[in-house]
Design a protein around this nucleic acid. Structure first.
Ligand SMILES: [Mn+2]
Ligand SMILES: [Mn+2]
Ligand SMILES: [Mn+2]
Ligand SMILES: [Mn+2]
Lengths: 220, 220
DNA sequence: AATTAAAGTTTGAGTAGTCAAACTTTTTTG
DNA sequence: CAAAAAAGTTTGACTACTCAAACTTTAATT
């Protein structure tokens, strides 16, 4: 079994590879993400490479192997099932569960994970709309686009909030922006890099392009 | 915060001190309990002593300080709340939950612990009848005696099974011996160091004194 | 192209936890 | 009580993880 530290590195690498156009991660961002020094990250990459969890050449990019990918998806599955449990059953705040799940994700046995998943009715997404990989590691991402790309008068439904930051989630929830909520884009102003949207029964809210880029929606 | 390893040492020390007449634990038993060598246990005791979690003189007994005791009770609380959740909500087997809780007990934040405890209705005992300390560290052990001390024809109710061993718990459950179950002691034979008991609607079962000593009962 | 900044690596050191094996002290027992 | 057994300690070595700081390589800028 991978240690808790290794699981955290692998999960961070997975996310970094996703969001990089080259599909490879770098040591500096990895270190920053995990709150360690670059040197620490480098030595860990060397160990992960030795364990065949990543493929990496000195001074070049880092990519997960199939084995590493499997672990990343498994940790993400545990993380998201736990978040769902914490919000749906224990009524924890949407904005708090990420940090809690960050620790718990390393302590769930396959047996408990499956029972929990079953108890929750095999959810397909977590409270933020993040897809939950199934036990085999298949993950089905719903087709969506960032709210920032919408035009005026578009009617859309929020499917996912792509930011685990507490204060952003707090803001999103306060504004009524959660997965499943319908929005109308009232106006778009490229000059101020912002747009105004209104939730079903809410007041109009102005969002910066940056904030709107974190809100994924689908057309309705 | 105490590390996972430290929490395990402290909890083991608590149990050993309880069951020792002198109220003090020894390095050999501690090491055996945790599956480490005596030398490892010795060096850990030195560190715990430095952190003021235990009081220990070389070649003499080990006792928890008030600070150590607090940690022990806190870990036990987490352990037993988790066991209760695993049995009551996730329907895990009585015999399996101990090992699962052994890992999870180190990953629960105070917030999640309290929500879980609340969700379960503030249980006072875990599935084995072990008392759950409250948030302040108060633990109320129900008055009880070992089944081994009962006389023939006595009618009693099981309140606790004092053994976390999987196979013993399996056997106990198979025989219908769980907390809350009423028993009649049919006969006691000191020669064979055994006794025959019968559950409410069950067949008579012969128990060795050793097994019967692990079953705590109260008179009814 | 030369300079600078950023990214990545190496080295030396430190903490937490562990073992094997030699050793010392205490306890048990013939 | 002397010998043996059990309990406890010490030493040297190892893995996992981390940092600070010096260093090297690559990428950006001017
Ligand atoms: Mn984590
Ligand atoms: Mn999430
Ligand atoms: Mn434990
Ligand atoms: Mn228990």
């Amino acid at each position: 079994m991978a240690t808790e530290t290794v699981e955290n590195y692998i999960k961070a690498l997975y996310a970094l590879c996703r969001e990089s156009p080259s599909g490879e991660a770098g040591v500096a961002r990895l270190a920053q993400e995990l709150g360690v020094t670059k040197g620490t990250a480098t030595s860990m990459i060397k160990r992960l490479s030795l364990a065949r969890l990543v493929k990496a050449e000195p001074y070049s990019g880092i990519a997960l192997t199939a084995k590493g990918n499997k672990i990343a998806l498994d940790v993400m599955r545990r993380h998201r099932v736990i978040e769902t449990f914490l919000v749906r059953i224990l009524k924890l705040d949407w904005a708090d569960v990420h940090e809690e799940a960050e620790r718990l994700e390393h302590a769930l046995s396959p047996r408990i994970l499956d029972r929990l998943d079953h108890f929750l009715g095999r959810p397909s997404t977590d409270p933020h709309g993040d897809p939950i990989p199934d036990a085999a590691g298949n993950v089905s991402e719903a087709r969506s686009k960032p709210l920032a790309k919408c035009r005026a008068r578009e009617r859309v439904r929020i499917v996912r909030i792509k930011d685990q930051n507490r204060s952003f989630l707090k803001f999103a929830a306060d504004s009524g922006f959660m997965p499943g909520v319908n929005l109308v884009v009232q106006s778009v102003s490229p000059q101020s890099a912002s747009l105004v949207v209104r939730a079903a029964r809410g007041k109009p809210v102005t969002l910066s392009q940056i904030a709107a880029a974190k809100i994924l929606v689908k057309m309705i």
